[in-house]
Design a protein around this nucleic acid. Structure first.
Lengths: 118, 118
DNA sequence: AATATGTTTCGTATTTTTGCGAAATAAGAA
DNA sequence: TTCTTATTTCGCAAAAATACGAAACATATT
């Protein structure tokens, strides 16, 4: 049964989550959000990866909508895409909070527990 | 330069985010957190995927630590792993909030803007 | 002992991600 | 115009994710 169980919202959350699903990309987001507001790609100096690899990670974050770039030749300044970031914030917040309200009763009533399987 | 820029924390956030990086897994988490506290794998009835595929998604969420299962033959009851979920909550919260405090000045000072490239 | 049940594991195929170095780009400086 | 610079795109290879159906599992029931 069911009527549209997998919604656009699930897709959107998954999209954002996937974009954050790599340590380098988490680092980039963190850097952009705290260190300085915007910056050019000299993140590369701090990371043990090739420039082209970094570029791909930036591309992923860009296409997910989490960051945006401004060209200032010969550099490119990146920053958080505030609009979409707030959207991500709301979506994650909703998911995270809803789960917080539930108290899990799973561990309270364990009939059988196979450590290696579960 | 740098001293440990990619930390365990980045890895951990990325790990959780990656686990949430698929619509089906977002749906599962949402279901586990709202619908009912725990349940068995009759999620399958609601999803347009094979049982074995669902099992794999459950496995991923499990190995990321976000959910846990209790066997009650012949069923298995799943629920959120509260401890780890709260950890994820904190980590995501920190990242999301820090970015919120920053106002992006990127769009405020666009020297050149190549839409197709950026 | 044989059967039924809900779920997982196995084997496999396809697609996506990750990563690199080399080459291309686009504009400013010489 | 030719060089320099920061970055991206290209071409490739290796690894991981996604998905399926068939077979295996562990127990409860007959």
């Amino acid at each position: 049964m069911s009527t549209k169980l997998l919604t656009k919202e699930h897709d959107q959350i998954a999209r954002y989550a996937k974009a954050l699903g790599h340590p380098v990309r988490v680092y980039i987001i963190e850097l952009l959000s705290t260190q300085s507001c915007c910056f050019s790609g000299d993140i590369a100096e701090d990371l043990p990866i090739a420039r082209s690899t970094l570029s791909q990670h930036l591309k992923e974050l860009k296409s997910a909508g989490l960051i945006q770039g401004t060209i200032e030749y010969p550099k490119i300044r990146y920053c958080i895409n505030k609009e979409n970031w707030e959207r991500a914030q709301k979506l994650f917040g909703k998911l995270l909070d809803s789960a917080a309200f539930t108290k899990s009763q799973c561990t309270a009533n364990p009939v059988v527990q196979l450590a290696d399987k579960i």
